[in-house]
Deep mutational scan, measured.
Amino acid sequence: KLCLVCSDEASGCHYGVLTCGSCKVFFKRAVEGQHNYLCAGRNDCIIDKIRRKNCPACRYRKCLQAGMNLEARKTK
């Protein structure tokens, strides 16, 4: 099974979405830290295992598009 954000090996369902541990922690920190990420490109950066750290804005956008939600952990 692959992470729906970066296509690395998924470690489980986190915040409602099948993700790897790295994307799970990234999403939690992004939401709780209330980061205002900005993409230096055109908001279409490739997010994969190798390049997932290059653009936090696009990675966060991809987390949201996949359906990640901090509240999902509280309902399970």
Rank of each mutant, 00 (worst) to 15 (best):
H35K: 12
D8Q: 10
N69R: 13
K24N: 10
C55K: 00
L2Y: 15
E71R: 07
F26S: 02
C13R: 10
K49W: 06
R42T: 14
D48P: 02
R51S: 11
H35N: 15
E32T: 12
N43R: 09
S7V: 03
R29Q: 07
G12C: 04
K62Y: 05
Y37M: 13
G67M: 02
L4C: 13
K74T: 10
K62H: 08
E71W: 06
G33T: 05
G21V: 08
A40G: 09
G16C: 03
K76T: 15
P56H: 06
C3V: 00
A72E: 14
K1A: 08
C58N: 02
A57H: 04
D48F: 03
N43P: 02
G41S: 10
C20Q: 00
K74M: 13
L64C: 14
S11A: 09
C58L: 01
C63S: 03
N69K: 12
L2T: 15
I47P: 03
K62S: 05
G16S: 05
S11M: 11
C13E: 14
M68F: 07
E9R: 14
A57Y: 04
G16W: 01
Y37D: 05
T19P: 01
C20T: 01
V31K: 07
K24E: 13
G16M: 03
G41T: 09
E9D: 11
F26E: 00
Y15P: 05
F27K: 00
R61H: 07
V31F: 12
C20S: 00
Y60N: 03
I46G: 06
A30P: 00
K28L: 11
S7K: 14
K62P: 01
D44F: 03
T75E: 14
V5K: 00
C55D: 00
C55E: 01
F27P: 02
L18R: 10
I47A: 03
E32M: 09
Q65W: 08
Q34V: 07
C39W: 00
G12A: 06
C63R: 01
T75R: 11
C45T: 00
M68Y: 04
R52G: 11
V25K: 15
D44Q: 10
R29T: 10
G12E: 08
G33E: 09
E71S: 11
D48K: 03
V17C: 15
A10N: 04
Y60A: 03
C13L: 12
R73Y: 08
K74H: 14
R42Q: 15
N69S: 14
V17F: 03
D44A: 11
L18G: 04
M68T: 02
L18D: 15
K62E: 04
E71C: 09
D44N: 07
